[in-house]
Each structure stands twice: as C-alpha cells, then as structure tokens.
Design a protein around this nucleic acid. Sequence first.
DNA 1: TATTGTTTTAAACAATTGTTTAAATTAAGT
DNA 2: ACTTAATTTAAACAATTGTTTAAAACAATA
Lengths: 209, 209
Amino acid sequence: MASSLSTEEKIKAAAKQVFISKGFSGCTSRELAKASGMNVALVNYYFRSKNKLFQLIFQTVMEEFFESMVSVFSSDLPLKEKLKFLIEREYAFLSKHPEIPRFIINELSRKDTDLIELTHVLPVIYNTGVIEQAIEAQKKGEMRRVDMVGITLLVVSNCQYPFMAKPLIKNLHNLSDEQYNHHIELHKGMVSEMIIGYLFPTEIKNELK
Amino acid sequence: MASSLSTEEKIKAAAKQVFISKGFSGCTSRELAKASGMNVALVNYYFRSKNKLFQLIFQTVMEEFFESMVSVFSSDLPLKEKLKFLIEREYAFLSKHPEIPRFIINELSRKDTDLIELTHVLPVIYNTGVIEQAIEAQKKGEMRRVDMVGITLLVVSNCQYPFMAKPLIKNLHNLSDEQYNHHIELHKGMVSEMIIGYLFPTEIKNELK
DNA sequence: TATTGTTTTAAACAATTGTTTAAATTAAGT
DNA sequence: ACTTAATTTAAACAATTGTTTAAAACAATA
C-alpha cells in the first residue's frame, strides 16, 4: 500500500481524487477523511478547512493541466508538428486524467469560488515564441489567419470534450467502456488531421479568409 | 412579473434555473424555494422531494437538449446542408442555454444518479434517414468514411465546448464577456467550415481513409 | 525516565441539511 | 353560510454538515 506516504500526503492524494470526481460541493469532510483512511479532525489539523484543502488541490491540478501544454509549445519543432504533437500529448494526458477538464471547468464556473488567476499562463506560452512562429506562417500564406483564442478553442474542444462527454456519448450510442475508448483513439487521429487540414490548407490560397 | 404562473410552475421554472447553474448537490431545498419566492414545505408539497423535482427537471432539460438536433436531421436537405444547419442550430440553442451541456454532462457523471435512458434518442435520429444519406454519400466517395459516433463527437465537441469552457478561456485569455461572445460567433463559422471541409474534401479521393 | 512537542483520536459544537407536521388560510361546491 | 378540499405557512424533526475541543497516544530529546 501507499502507507509509505506521510499522513498529510495521504490526505492530499485521496482528497485530490475525491474532489476531482465529485467536485467541492459533491463531497463532505468525512468523505475526504475516510478516503484517505483518516478522520475529520486530522484533515482539518493539516489543512485547516475543507475549503483550504480544496484551494490547495485546485491549484496543483491547474498546474498539471497546463504543464504539458506549455512544454509542447516550447519544443523545437515546426509549427505544424508542434500542433500535432500538442494534440497527441493532450490525448495522452486526458487518457490518464479524463476527469480533470470537467473538474476545472466546473469549479471555475462556481460563482462563489475564489477566482484563480490564470493570466500568468498565457505569457508563458507567448514567451515560447510560438506566436511569432504562427504570425510568420500566416504572412507566408501557409497558415490560415486564426487568432490565438480560435486555435485554443479548436484544439481543446476536440481534445477535452470527448473525455468530458464520455457518459453522455456512451449512453447515447449504447457503447461499452472499451468501445468508447476505442472511438476516442480513432478520434484522436481524425481531430489531428482535421485541425491541421483546416489551419494549413494544401492549396495555397493568396487570401486565406 | 411571472405571477400569472401557478405556484407549481413557478417552482419548476426557478428550480430549473438553479439546478442548471449550480447542479443537484450545489444547491439546497431552501435555495430552490427562495428562488421561486416560496418556502421549503411548498416545494415538497408539489414535488415530494428535492430528488424527485430534480429528476423531473433533468428529464425536460434532456428533451430540450436533443429536440433541435433531431429536428435538423429530419429536415429535407442534402447532407452537407443538414450539417451546416445543425451547427447553426446548435450554436443558436447554446447561445440561449449556455449552461445546459455542462449541467447534463455533470449530472450524467454522478455515480449516484438514477441512470437516465437515452437510447431512445438514437433510433429517432436513425429514422430520419440521415444515416442512409451518409452511407450513400460515402459510397459515392463524396464523404469521408466516419461513423456516427465520430460525426457526433466532431459536431458536439466544437459546438458545446466553447460554451462550457467560457470561464476557463475567458480567464486564460483575459477577455470580457462581449469579447468572448464575439469569439464564439467567429468560431461558429470556423467550425462549420472545418468540419464540412474535413468530411467532404474537395479533391475527390478514390480511397478516403 | 521524565519532559518536551507532535500527531491522532473520540466526542462535541452550532449550523445547515432534506423532510414532515400540524395548524392556518384560501378556494370551491353545496 | 357551511362543508369540504386544496393550498400555504411556520415550526419542528432527525440527520448531516464543517469545524473545534480536549484528552490520549506517540515520538524525540534531555
């Protein structure tokens, strides 16, 4: 067992799982405690309150969430390959952590949540030089003139949604877990081809939209 | 005011709003009551329990959710136009009800939720003849050989995600509400062009994947 | 071993939860 | 007007919530 971890780490690890799958308001202090084999008092001894524990975990999940993304942008690859690589990495990350996008989007949607500052993430990406890369490709007419928001939306929509909507699509099409996972794997290739095909049309047009 | 509505309708309408934006476990009986200007006892007088009220509302939201989709499939249009029209309708629906996809996906993800049967939706779509339309187009080599699950995923990912992830993307790119809504409107066109372009490539290949 | 400080426990706290009660009010039919 | 039924209210219910208390168990150091 993971009994080599300290009590504090055990609570944090268990709470992370519970929070991610049930959300802040979907679980109780006692559930968090029980999930780590501890009791309620112990959770508050180490983390002061359910809310403090949540904030801590939300922060780390957010970091994991953006980590792989930024690292891909920093890689030394031509733009088209970067994008393919990014999609590949996103699918790999989401296969391991399929519940994270839903968790993050939900908690960011809570009106009463302490707003988490994300604006530091974008500058990091900007500093990787990927933007200049894109602008140059667009000037050369190799790449469609889509801004950063549009590209972000294209990529994350097609990567994250299939994992988020698993229970919906599974139910709708009457699929088993294995069948759905197979569809996701298939979908990864389609998405990559579709997005690349859209952003980098083969027929070089002088005026790309 | 909406005081022309009966008490029962007032509670239902208010509860719908509250459930959609905060989820089942994100709100209390008293909050549901107060939102409709009533008290807790009244809510349970008409709906027996918070859970019963929720099931009722969830059912109707699901129906709204699929309604426009099915109606598009039933329309008398060529396949490509149907798809464009579907995307247009989805964006229109989601502009009015941006919180519904997140709500549905969340509640379907709750392990402890009473499983709602969706399998009746698919046969309805099948009966519109859209599947035969697609198979024929694929045989003629006009359409890429993507199955129903793939098509569903392509469309709903690119329609629903931008609305679901609004707080995430807004925060990430430091956008105002107006700016983001503008991006969504822009995105609609991109998505339509991209999906159509992918599913119906202009260069007729003999062997489409 | 005695004395620290740290960790863990069981029990309790007040507040809030979903739900019910029983009385009060209103409406409807005679 | 009287009776019955339907609606609305305020209050209460037991259970659960997040949090705290105070004592016990443990560890480290002298």
